[in-house]
Design a protein around this nucleic acid. Sequence first.
DNA 1: CAAATAGTGTCTTTTAGACACTATTCG
DNA 2: CGAATAGTGTCTAAAAGACACTATTTG
Lengths: 211, 211
Amino acid sequence: MSTYVDPSGRRLDDYPRPSVAVDTAVLTVTAERSLAVVLVATDGGWRLPGTFLHEHETLAEAVLRSLRTKAGVEGLSPRQLHVFDEPDRDDRGWVLSVAHRDAVPVERLTVDEELARITPLTALPALPYGHEDILKAAVATLRDDYAYRPDPSALLAAPFTLRDLQLLHEAVAGAPFRRDTFRRTMEPQLRATGETLLGSVGKPARLFTRD
Amino acid sequence: MSTYVDPSGRRLDDYPRPSVAVDTAVLTVTAERSLAVVLVATDGGWRLPGTFLHEHETLAEAVLRSLRTKAGVEGLSPRQLHVFDEPDRDDRGWVLSVAHRDAVPVERLTVDEELARITPLTALPALPYGHEDILKAAVATLRDDYAYRPDPSALLAAPFTLRDLQLLHEAVAGAPFRRDTFRRTMEPQLRATGETLLGSVGKPARLFTRD
DNA sequence: CAAATAGTGTCTTTTAGACACTATTCG
DNA sequence: CGAATAGTGTCTAAAAGACACTATTTG
């Protein structure tokens, strides 16, 4: 593995190499139906959870490792967003950061309150290392995903009503939707369980599952 | 810059670090109106142009350096696609590859015929290191870009006719378009020069520029 | 029954596509 | 004039949006 010699006669591992980090925006929708992100404490402030890439580890594995230890979540499927490479973005040296995104139901997040917070986007503190750009990109991809599909990140526990689904979509998009149009877009993509949800005022709502 | 000490007491540069490469799919449309990509010769085969990231260099700078030396193009604006990180994808060791894409008019490509070829996608050889996936992603983003805009990568020399533009779009999309619909979509996004193109059979075509 | 929520019929507006016609040049 | 290419009017089909009505529950 170190026997490759390039045209100028130097071996691959003679070149200086950057450290590679992963930083992840873990998004969720809180019980109060607001879009939120997991932040971890850093000296005097908050940042997105991240870690350095270890040897014999893929980027996705590094993301999962950092989220397991810092946000108490398992079994996510992080998606790559962008590599941040501005030479001076990190005062610890030459560090490339590969930004990732994931979304998870708030019930599955068991963050250690000493180390991490679930922060609504409306109450966001200043973030270091360009993490605000990562977050912006993460929210944009989540909105894209939800634009035409009921619940691609499985943020809702099945079975759910169309009202639940609409409230979720409104939290993700940050904007209200028409009830009738929303129903007609989503219902063909859901499977009705045949059950209804009783117990509150009004006509009982039918229950659905994804697919 | 090497004084950072992490929680386990190790300095940042004590960790093993990967080599980081950039690989770029440079797309163009040939005089024969076919979508093509720049490939460079490697031992016994062809690959996308790429290079290792140097110290104090951004990814974009590394891409521009590799294209200057290997494809004779200046002044591109490469776009990041994805990081390829499968541990065994490169037999030279632990190498992450950051895939990029750019598109350029074929007239601006002055490749050294000994080292590089402009290869139509219909005559593509097998590519190593997952470069076929990079190419696929590059073509997909180019098609997305051209779906609703006249010529976002400025592949056409202005002024041009709507017919020229439609032939370009058909080369990019690999599919024909309706003449009337195409015109109605694009014309509002172009500026007519007021000139027409004479010299061939048929009604003279009006000339347009981007913006 | 009133209030509240679920679900749907239907009309309008917008957009995309299809087709056919007119317009202007060259040889 | 005929062939070829440019440009447009208009009809149709599909999709999105708006509105109002019906349906079924709780208290």
